[in-house]
Structure formats: C-alpha cells, structure tokens
Amino acid sequence: MPHTFEDLIALERAAQAAHQQYTAPGVGDLDAARRAWIDAAAAFQAAVTEHAAADDKLSRVEVEMAVKKAVRHGEAEG
C-alpha cells in the first residue's frame, strides 16, 4: 500500500533528525550515525517513489518537493 502524505512527512522528519545526529558535535559512533542517516534518507526516497507511482497526478519530483516544503514550513498536509 502506498504511503500517505503524512507518512512521507514523518519519514522526511526522521531523515532530517538522523542528519542532525550525524552532524552534531561530539557524536560518538560517526559510522553508525552516518549509516542511520543514509538508511532514513533511503527509506524516505523509496516511499516517495512508491507514492508517486500510485499518484497519476504528481511526478516523483513534485511529491518530494511538496513533502520537503511541508516539513520546512511546518505543514501537516499537502
């Protein structure tokens, strides 16, 4: 089942949080933090691709940009 727009927002927020952990000063295990960030970002990208494939109105890029805009501007829905 395709991810909802709210699912995509949650996945992008998780990827951003993982990136913040990776770039935080004094991070303990840099390799683990980097892997967590890459895994979170990959999960977001896969979900965006799946969502766009199920939506015949928006391209993959349009879906990704709508989610990123919603996350950056604090919107819960797209």
Rank of each mutant, 00 (worst) to 15 (best):
A10Y: 01
W37I: 00
A46P: 07
P2N: 09
A15W: 06
T4Y: 08
Q16G: 11
D39H: 05
R72W: 05
V27S: 02
H73N: 06
G78A: 15
A43H: 10
Q21H: 11
F44W: 10
A41I: 05
A41K: 14
D39R: 10
A18F: 06
M65P: 12
G26P: 02
T23W: 07
T23C: 09
E6R: 14
I38L: 14
I9H: 13
I38K: 08
T49N: 06
E77T: 15
V48H: 01
W37H: 06
K57C: 11
R13H: 00
E75P: 00
D56R: 13
A10W: 01
E62T: 07
D55A: 06
F44H: 10
R34P: 00
A70C: 12
D56A: 12
E50F: 01
A18T: 07
R72A: 13
H3P: 08
P2K: 08
D55K: 03
H51C: 10
A17E: 14
Q21C: 05
F44M: 01
V61L: 12
H51T: 09
V61P: 02
D31M: 11
E64Q: 12
A10E: 09
E75D: 04
E50D: 08
R60N: 10
A43S: 12
A43V: 04
A24Q: 10
D39Y: 04
D31E: 10
Q16I: 12
A43M: 07
G28S: 15
S59C: 01
A54C: 03
E6K: 10
A54Y: 01
Q45F: 02
F5G: 08
A42D: 11
G28K: 15
W37K: 02
A32S: 13
T23E: 11
Q16F: 11
A76T: 13
V48R: 00
M1P: 10
A33L: 07
G74M: 07
G26K: 05
L11C: 02
A46Q: 14
R34S: 02
E75H: 09
H3M: 07
V63L: 00
E64C: 09
A70K: 07
A17T: 12
E12R: 08
M65W: 15
M65N: 15
R35Q: 15
P25R: 13
D39V: 09
H73Q: 06
D29I: 06
P25S: 15
K57M: 14
D29C: 04
A46M: 13
A52F: 04
H19S: 01
F5K: 12
A24V: 01
R60T: 11
A15R: 07
A24W: 00
F44G: 03
A18R: 02
A41R: 15
R13S: 00
H73E: 08
H73V: 04
E6M: 05
E64Y: 09
V63T: 01
G28L: 13
A46L: 14
I9E: 12
D56F: 13
L58W: 12
F5W: 10
K57Y: 15
F44A: 03
K57A: 14
